[in-house]
Design a binder for these strands. Structure first.
Lengths: 240, 240
DNA sequence: TTTACGAAGGGTACTGGGTACCATAGGATC
DNA sequence: GATCCTATGGTACCCAGTACCCTTCGTAAA
């Protein structure tokens, strides 16, 4: 057989290791696969594995480190818009990483559901995303009362909503529209926490008021949705 | 010297181990203390340690398992009130556990800040609280649209707010009022997510409305506070 | 009193992740 | 060709966690 791809550029060892590891994990389970098995399968030395992955768990999530760096860069470059929108967009960066490799993500989801150690590891990764978002929000609100509290609560909400949408998509076998699922989930957070104050206010609008009417007894989150809708409509009206 | 306490009832081995472990952790650090050190200090066999603590990390948080059981029982016994209030009260159960031993909690906080492994372990514990709360909320809202999503987001918010207040208290050296700190933090969550619908509505109030006036451009969370205040006032008025 | 039994603790050997330290090879640079 | 630097390999070790079996002791039944 001939190799028509020219001089075969060998793929980076990190990828080789991650693939070998994942194949073995799917075949005989995470815990019943030793690092020695992995390096034997990849044909490299044991020492090399730990050069590329600080722990066995890391080999299951080979892209998170890069994604976390992406998110940090994204938020550092974020402009003056609504900070809550920015962190929602940041969450979508993570989603995109999952959505890029649907079958891999779905298989890995099955793995993490079974292995407590992987669940814990994933928690620690998710926590770093959350801290990154909370740090951004806190910087944006620096000086405001309760900035840290609001930042942490909103970051936690965004992460929870994102994960809800993501898991829903993963459970469906990665067949639906991941983005739509997550957008729907994030909508709830944006409706409640999205800050109208961050939109450029109409000039000299300090004393303008809106009037909102809502059925008494409605859940608060529906009231909030109406408030936001009213604010949007009002904006549109005054700008028209 | 005489022992005037009568027949000295030896304290349970679990407590002996936890105390010996914590003393050593504070003295030379978590990672530089081996399980062999602990059992030698406690004067028992190595095997006994793992009978009482599934891992070395567990010895640092000896009360979480009991507290988690308490929370589960508390939520199972919770009545028909506002579910969000119930999970806020559930969070206060956790706080109470910390507040019962201030100096221990503060010292342990220093430990967990330093040791990544302990941070990760704590994350996994916190996650179990969060899952317990989310499960309760979802059951209470069974059948409602987006029940799971709202349950997860609100549980995450409550946990984040609780942790914010708790950490603030821990950083102060455990000297202030932990309950007040956490109440203040939870107030933000309750203002946004507390469901007016769960309060017994005025009879035949289906089509009643409230009118709310707020400065346009105000942050959404302030708007929400006003909405809730308006609802409270309206209730008081109609009942008077 | 003796025997049976079950709970609490102990001991030993092993697995396997993770680290420290050193050795080696290959390519680039001077 | 000598000198680095980087990528990789190898060996030995530490220690958490597990499997398996043993001892002890108090209690209850015989």
């Amino acid at each position: 057989m001939t190799d028509d791809r020219g001089p075969a550029k060998k793929p980076p060892m990190r990828d080789v290791l991650a693939e070998a590891a994942f194949a073995l994990f799917m075949e005989r389970g995470f815990e019943r696969t030793t690092v020695d098995d992995i390096v034997a399968s990849a044909g490299v030395g044991r020492r090399s594995f730990f050069r590329y992955f600080p722990s066995k768990e890391d080999a299951v999530f080979p892209d998170h480190e890069r994604c976390l760096a992406d998110m940090t860069a994204f938020l550092e470059a974020a402009g003056e818009g609504d900070p809550v929108e920015a962190v929602c967009d940041a969450a979508r960066l993570v989603l995109r990483m999952y959505a890029e490799k649907p079958e891999f993500s779905v298989q890995r989801y099955g793995l993490t559901r079974e292995v407590p150690g992987l669940r814990t590891y994933e928690l620690s990764v998710v926590r770093r995303y959350e801290r990154t978002m909370a740090g951004y929000l806190e910087r944006r609100w620096a000086g405001a009362p309760d900035a840290a509290l609001r930042a942490e609560v909103i970051a936690a909400s965004v992460v929870a909503a994102h994960n809800n949408g993501l898991r829903s998509w993963l459970r469906s076998g990665g067949r639906g529209d991941a983005g739509a699922e997550v957008d729907r989930a994030l909508e709830l957070v944006r409706a409640v926490w999205g800050s109208a104050a961050e939109r450029p206010p109409a000039p000299a609008a300090e004393d303008e008021v809106i009037v909102m009417i809502a059925p008494k007894g409605a859940p608060m989150w529906r009231v909030v949705q109406r408030v936001e809708a009213a604010l949007d409509e009002e904006r549109g009206t005054t700008e028209r």
